[in-house]
Protein backbone atom coordinates (compact mmCIF):
# COMPACT_ATOMS: atom_id res chain seq x y z
CA UNK A 1 0.00 0.00 0.00
CA UNK A 2 1.78 3.12 -1.19
CA UNK A 3 -0.49 5.96 -0.31
CA UNK A 4 2.12 8.46 0.76
CA UNK A 5 1.19 10.87 -2.01
CA UNK A 6 -2.13 11.47 -0.27
CA UNK A 7 -0.30 13.52 2.35
CA UNK A 8 1.59 15.69 -0.15
CA UNK A 9 -1.02 18.48 -0.38
CA UNK A 10 -0.98 18.64 3.41
CA UNK A 11 2.81 18.74 3.59
CA UNK A 12 2.92 21.50 1.01
CA UNK A 13 0.30 23.39 3.00
CA UNK A 14 2.18 23.03 6.28
CA UNK A 15 5.49 24.10 4.76
CA UNK A 16 3.83 27.11 3.16
CA UNK A 17 1.67 28.21 6.11
CA UNK A 18 3.53 26.95 9.18
CA UNK A 19 7.20 26.45 8.42
CA UNK A 20 7.77 29.38 6.09
CA UNK A 21 5.96 31.95 8.29
CA UNK A 22 8.04 30.91 11.30
CA UNK A 23 11.15 31.31 9.17
CA UNK A 24 9.93 34.83 8.37
CA UNK A 25 9.58 35.63 12.07
CA UNK A 26 13.14 34.44 12.59
CA UNK A 27 14.29 36.48 9.58
CA UNK A 28 12.63 39.67 10.87
CA UNK A 29 14.05 39.16 14.35
CA UNK A 30 17.69 39.18 13.19
CA UNK A 31 17.54 41.91 10.56
CA UNK A 32 17.29 45.64 10.49
CA UNK A 33 15.74 47.63 7.68
CA UNK A 34 17.88 50.67 7.08
CA UNK A 35 18.08 53.05 4.13
CA UNK A 36 20.72 50.87 2.50
CA UNK A 37 18.63 47.74 2.78
CA UNK A 38 18.80 44.75 5.08
CA UNK A 39 21.42 44.33 7.78
CA UNK A 40 22.07 41.48 10.18
CA UNK A 41 21.73 42.50 13.84
CA UNK A 42 21.09 41.11 17.29
CA UNK A 43 20.02 44.51 18.59
CA UNK A 44 16.37 43.47 18.90
CA UNK A 45 17.25 40.66 21.26
CA UNK A 46 19.51 42.99 23.23
CA UNK A 47 16.72 45.55 23.43
CA UNK A 48 14.50 42.95 25.07
CA UNK A 49 17.04 42.84 27.92
CA UNK A 50 16.35 46.49 28.81
CA UNK A 51 14.80 47.03 32.27
CA UNK A 52 11.32 48.12 31.05
CA UNK A 53 10.94 45.01 28.94
CA UNK A 54 12.42 42.73 31.56
CA UNK A 55 9.83 44.14 33.93
CA UNK A 56 7.09 43.11 31.50
CA UNK A 57 8.63 39.66 31.31
CA UNK A 58 8.83 39.24 35.09
CA UNK A 59 5.27 40.49 35.48
CA UNK A 60 4.00 37.98 32.90
CA UNK A 61 5.84 35.15 34.58
CA UNK A 62 4.69 36.27 38.03
CA UNK A 63 1.00 36.51 37.14
CA UNK A 64 1.10 33.24 35.19
CA UNK A 65 2.82 31.50 38.11
CA UNK A 66 0.29 32.78 40.65
CA UNK A 67 -2.55 31.63 38.39
CA UNK A 68 -0.95 28.24 37.90
CA UNK A 69 -0.51 27.71 41.65
CA UNK A 70 -4.11 28.78 42.30
CA UNK A 71 -5.37 26.48 39.55
CA UNK A 72 -3.41 23.60 41.07
CA UNK A 73 -4.72 24.27 44.56
CA UNK A 74 -8.33 24.57 43.37
CA UNK A 75 -8.05 21.93 40.68
CA UNK A 76 -6.36 19.00 42.38
CA UNK A 77 -9.18 18.38 44.90
CA UNK A 78 -11.71 18.82 42.10
CA UNK A 79 -9.90 16.25 39.96
CA UNK A 80 -9.92 13.83 42.90
CA UNK A 81 -13.63 14.34 43.41
CA UNK A 82 -14.35 13.78 39.71
CA UNK A 83 -12.17 10.67 39.66
CA UNK A 84 -13.86 9.20 42.74
CA UNK A 85 -17.24 7.53 42.68
CA UNK A 86 -19.25 10.09 44.55
CA UNK A 87 -21.82 10.79 41.90
CA UNK A 88 -24.25 8.58 40.11
CA UNK A 89 -23.98 10.45 36.87
CA UNK A 90 -20.23 10.84 36.54
CA UNK A 91 -20.30 11.31 32.76
CA UNK A 92 -22.63 14.26 33.07
CA UNK A 93 -20.47 15.81 35.80
CA UNK A 94 -17.46 15.66 33.52
CA UNK A 95 -19.44 16.90 30.56
CA UNK A 96 -20.64 19.88 32.61
CA UNK A 97 -17.08 20.57 33.59
CA UNK A 98 -15.96 20.66 29.96
CA UNK A 99 -18.78 22.83 28.56
CA UNK A 100 -17.55 26.25 29.77
CA UNK A 101 -14.14 25.45 28.30
CA UNK A 102 -15.72 25.40 24.86
CA UNK A 103 -17.45 28.72 25.21
CA UNK A 104 -15.72 31.59 23.47
CA UNK A 105 -13.05 32.68 25.92
CA UNK A 106 -13.63 36.35 25.12
CA UNK A 107 -17.15 35.94 26.41
CA UNK A 108 -15.96 34.12 29.53
CA UNK A 109 -13.60 37.01 30.18
CA UNK A 110 -16.27 39.55 29.35
CA UNK A 111 -18.61 37.87 31.84
CA UNK A 112 -16.20 38.80 34.60
CA UNK A 113 -16.08 42.41 33.40
CA UNK A 114 -19.81 42.69 34.02
CA UNK A 115 -19.42 41.18 37.49
CA UNK A 116 -16.42 43.20 38.62
CA UNK A 117 -17.12 46.64 37.19
CA UNK A 118 -17.83 49.69 39.35
CA UNK A 119 -21.60 49.36 39.01
CA UNK A 120 -21.48 45.60 38.60
CA UNK A 121 -23.26 42.90 40.49
CA UNK A 122 -20.61 42.38 43.16
CA UNK A 123 -20.40 46.08 44.03
CA UNK A 124 -24.17 46.40 44.04
CA UNK A 125 -24.31 43.51 46.47
CA UNK A 126 -21.66 45.17 48.65
CA UNK A 127 -23.50 48.48 48.79
CA UNK A 128 -26.71 46.59 49.57
CA UNK A 129 -24.84 45.21 52.58
CA UNK A 130 -23.89 48.78 53.44
CA UNK A 131 -20.25 48.45 52.41
CA UNK A 132 -18.27 50.79 50.20
CA UNK A 133 -17.85 49.76 46.58
CA UNK A 134 -14.42 48.37 45.72
CA UNK A 135 -12.18 48.86 42.74
CA UNK A 136 -12.27 45.35 41.37
CA UNK A 137 -11.93 45.70 37.63
CA UNK A 138 -8.65 46.82 36.05
CA UNK A 139 -6.47 45.38 38.81
CA UNK A 140 -3.80 42.70 38.80
CA UNK A 141 -6.09 40.52 40.89
CA UNK A 142 -8.77 40.74 38.19
CA UNK A 143 -6.23 39.55 35.61
CA UNK A 144 -5.28 36.59 37.81
CA UNK A 145 -8.95 35.80 38.38
CA UNK A 146 -9.55 35.83 34.64
CA UNK A 147 -6.64 33.47 34.08
CA UNK A 148 -7.77 31.05 36.80
CA UNK A 149 -11.32 31.09 35.47
CA UNK A 150 -10.27 30.49 31.88
CA UNK A 151 -7.60 27.87 32.49
CA UNK A 152 -8.86 25.86 35.50
CA UNK A 153 -10.25 23.01 33.31
CA UNK A 154 -6.81 22.62 31.70
CA UNK A 155 -5.45 21.79 35.15
CA UNK A 156 -8.28 19.55 36.28
CA UNK A 157 -8.68 17.35 33.18
CA UNK A 158 -5.11 15.95 32.90
CA UNK A 159 -4.96 15.28 36.65
CA UNK A 160 -8.38 13.67 36.51
CA UNK A 161 -7.36 11.44 33.62
CA UNK A 162 -4.25 10.20 35.50
CA UNK A 163 -6.12 9.74 38.78
CA UNK A 164 -8.86 7.67 37.21
CA UNK A 165 -6.25 5.29 35.76
CA UNK A 166 -4.66 4.54 39.16
CA UNK A 167 -5.05 0.88 40.11
CA UNK A 168 -7.51 0.82 43.01
CA UNK A 169 -5.76 -2.28 44.41
CA UNK A 170 -2.69 -0.18 45.15
CA UNK A 171 -4.73 2.09 47.38
CA UNK A 172 -6.36 -0.86 49.13
CA UNK A 173 -3.00 -2.56 49.55
CA UNK A 174 -1.56 0.54 51.18
CA UNK A 175 -4.57 0.64 53.50
CA UNK A 176 -4.19 -3.05 54.37
CA UNK A 177 -0.56 -2.49 55.19
CA UNK A 178 -1.61 0.02 57.80
CA UNK A 179 -1.33 3.40 56.08
CA UNK A 180 -3.92 5.95 57.09
CA UNK A 181 -5.78 7.99 54.46
CA UNK A 182 -3.31 10.85 54.57
CA UNK A 183 -0.30 8.57 54.15
CA UNK A 184 -2.00 6.77 51.27
CA UNK A 185 -2.50 10.10 49.56
CA UNK A 186 1.06 11.27 50.22
CA UNK A 187 2.86 8.03 49.37
CA UNK A 188 0.65 6.47 46.69
CA UNK A 189 -1.84 8.80 45.03
CA UNK A 190 0.25 11.96 44.84
CA UNK A 191 3.40 10.38 43.31
CA UNK A 192 1.32 8.46 40.77
CA UNK A 193 -0.58 11.59 39.75
CA UNK A 194 2.54 13.71 39.19
CA UNK A 195 2.57 13.26 35.38
CA UNK A 196 -0.95 14.70 35.27
CA UNK A 197 0.10 17.57 37.53
CA UNK A 198 3.04 18.34 35.26
CA UNK A 199 0.92 18.43 32.12
CA UNK A 200 -1.72 20.47 33.95
CA UNK A 201 0.88 23.00 35.00
CA UNK A 202 2.13 23.42 31.43
CA UNK A 203 -1.37 23.63 30.02
CA UNK A 204 -2.20 26.48 32.40
CA UNK A 205 1.14 28.25 32.47
CA UNK A 206 1.70 28.39 28.69
CA UNK A 207 -1.53 30.15 27.69
CA UNK A 208 -1.40 32.32 30.82
CA UNK A 209 2.05 33.61 30.04
CA UNK A 210 1.20 34.38 26.39
CA UNK A 211 -2.26 35.91 26.76
CA UNK A 212 -2.90 39.48 25.75
CA UNK A 213 -6.69 39.45 25.83
CA UNK A 214 -7.27 38.77 29.53
CA UNK A 215 -4.79 41.44 30.57
CA UNK A 216 -6.33 43.91 28.13
CA UNK A 217 -9.96 43.33 29.14
CA UNK A 218 -9.62 42.75 32.88
CA UNK A 219 -6.45 44.76 33.43
CA UNK A 220 -7.62 47.65 31.27
CA UNK A 221 -4.28 47.88 29.51
CA UNK A 222 -2.47 49.01 32.66
CA UNK A 223 -0.63 45.75 33.14
CA UNK A 224 1.33 45.08 30.00
CA UNK A 225 2.17 41.41 29.65
CA UNK A 226 4.52 39.89 27.14
CA UNK A 227 1.58 39.10 24.84
CA UNK A 228 0.46 42.74 24.94
CA UNK A 229 4.02 43.82 24.15
CA UNK A 230 4.07 41.64 21.04
CA UNK A 231 0.62 42.83 19.99
CA UNK A 232 1.70 46.48 20.41
CA UNK A 233 4.88 46.03 18.37
CA UNK A 234 2.97 44.50 15.48
CA UNK A 235 -0.27 46.46 15.44
CA UNK A 236 0.57 49.90 16.83
CA UNK A 237 4.31 50.57 17.08
CA UNK A 238 5.02 48.92 13.73
CA UNK A 239 8.35 47.59 14.99
CA UNK A 240 8.01 44.13 13.50
CA UNK A 241 11.63 43.21 14.06
CA UNK A 242 11.44 43.81 17.81
CA UNK A 243 8.06 42.06 17.95
CA UNK A 244 9.54 39.10 16.09
CA UNK A 245 12.50 38.94 18.46
CA UNK A 246 10.18 38.76 21.50
CA UNK A 247 8.07 36.13 19.74
CA UNK A 248 11.18 34.08 18.95
CA UNK A 249 12.24 34.09 22.59
CA UNK A 250 8.75 33.14 23.73
CA UNK A 251 8.38 30.42 21.10
CA UNK A 252 11.72 28.80 21.81
CA UNK A 253 11.06 28.73 25.55
CA UNK A 254 7.64 27.17 25.00
CA UNK A 255 8.66 24.62 22.37
CA UNK A 256 11.65 23.54 24.47
CA UNK A 257 9.69 23.15 27.68
CA UNK A 258 6.89 21.31 25.87
CA UNK A 259 9.29 18.83 24.32
CA UNK A 260 10.95 18.22 27.69
CA UNK A 261 7.54 17.68 29.26
CA UNK A 262 6.22 15.35 26.54
CA UNK A 263 9.36 13.29 26.98
CA UNK A 264 8.74 13.15 30.72
CA UNK A 265 5.12 12.19 30.06
CA UNK A 266 6.05 9.40 27.68
CA UNK A 267 8.39 7.93 30.28
CA UNK A 268 5.67 8.05 32.87
CA UNK A 269 2.75 7.26 30.58
CA UNK A 270 1.21 10.49 31.70
CA UNK A 271 -2.19 11.88 30.96
CA UNK A 272 -1.92 14.42 28.22
CA UNK A 273 -5.11 15.98 27.01
CA UNK A 274 -4.64 14.61 23.50
Amino acid sequence: MKKNWLSYPYLLWMVLFVFFPLLLVFFYSITDRTGEGLRFTLAHFRRFMEPIYLKVLTRSVKLALISTVLCLMLGYPMAMILAGNHFKRKNIMIFLFVVPMWMNFLLRTYAWMTLLERKGLINTFLSWLGLNPLNLLYTEEAVVLGMVYNFLPFMVLPIYSVLSKIDKNLIEAAGDLGANQFTVFLKVILPLSLPGVVSGITMVFMPAVTTFVISRLLGGGQFTLIGNLIEQQFLYAGDWSFGSAISMVMMIVILLSTSVITKYEKENEGGGLW
Binding site: P21, T210, E231, G243
Partner: peptide
Protein backbone atom coordinates in the same frame (compact mmCIF):
# COMPACT_ATOMS: atom_id res chain seq x y z
CA UNK B 1 2.88 27.10 19.50
CA UNK B 2 1.17 30.02 21.27
CA UNK B 3 -1.73 31.32 19.16
CA UNK B 4 -0.22 34.76 19.10
CA UNK B 5 2.92 33.45 17.37
CA UNK B 6 0.89 31.43 14.85
CA UNK B 7 -1.23 34.52 14.17
CA UNK B 8 1.56 36.99 13.68
CA UNK B 9 3.70 34.59 11.65
CA UNK B 10 0.80 34.17 9.22
CA UNK B 11 0.33 37.92 9.16
CA UNK B 12 4.01 38.33 8.26
CA UNK B 13 3.57 35.76 5.49
Amino acid sequence: NPDIVTGLSLMLL
